[in-house]
Design a protein around this nucleic acid. Sequence first.
DNA 1: TTTTAATATAATGGA
DNA 2: TCCATTATATTAAT
Lengths: 160, 160
Amino acid sequence: MAAHRSGPSAFTIASILGLSRPEQRSNMSIPYRPWADVPSTQNCHTVTADGSLEVAAEEEKSAITAPVESCRRTLNWYIGRRPRTAFSSLQIEILESVFQVNSYPGIDLREELAQKLHLDEDRIQIWFQNRRAKLKRSHRESQFLMVKKVISGLQGRDQQ
Amino acid sequence: MAAHRSGPSAFTIASILGLSRPEQRSNMSIPYRPWADVPSTQNCHTVTADGSLEVAAEEEKSAITAPVESCRRTLNWYIGRRPRTAFSSLQIEILESVFQVNSYPGIDLREELAQKLHLDEDRIQIWFQNRRAKLKRSHRESQFLMVKKVISGLQGRDQQ
DNA sequence: TTTTAATATAATGGA
DNA sequence: TCCATTATATTAAT
């Protein structure tokens, strides 16, 4: 509480509200939301970077929801949570095919994917994290079912 | 409250608990849950009718989760809601392709689909209902966006 | 890893 | 049948 850092303009309105430029922010307590760099209401119908055009097309769906996404993004900026990115089916397909070969892609491969799929590298990283978790979960589940099957098999034999 | 119907055995324990056979049930107030006809614990690992075998294969996924589904089904029976059926991707694909041609299939077509896809006819019916709702929703949404676009266009011109 | 929460959609009930 | 609503499954984000 009482510990404040020395330096110029530590308590400006802008810094308190978290509105300073990234390079000016102190490195703690105020989360940096780079996805909220939507300058004004005018851009509320620009296309988001997510389902972008070159890879997928992904007809109607993204074309219709993209502006909504963008506005919701502005809203979520206030709430403080990154708006959930919706991957296109082609993006998923490619990510999946990479995952089959390598479920722990290094930074270089992630960057390459990011560029090719028009996604941030950290979106890719998170995706692989979640994908690995999913795989693990399904393994656990099938093991559980195996055990259960054995048990119910024993019960069946007893009842015969 | 005080009005009770005449007839034989109107107040047996079975009827009060809703355990009578379908043809014996009075036609009001107690919902009939035919999907809950799981006789005993033994059948807890039988394969459900849902993702069934001939149409799709739909490898690992349904093979792994089917037993879980079945048990959850037993659980949901107590809760009283039909367990959510997970359509296979092939089933969806076919339903979608039919929907494009005819979004109001008659009973005959529904029955045919039911047979081909190994689903109950009323699952098909519900699917088309929900699908139509989805379509309508997307229409509404795109209209809304069109209006919004016009409005923000006007604003932009004012600000120029 | 676990938890939270956003989204999609199957199921229900009422008109 | 449509509509509004609820429940649930998946999964991005923390």
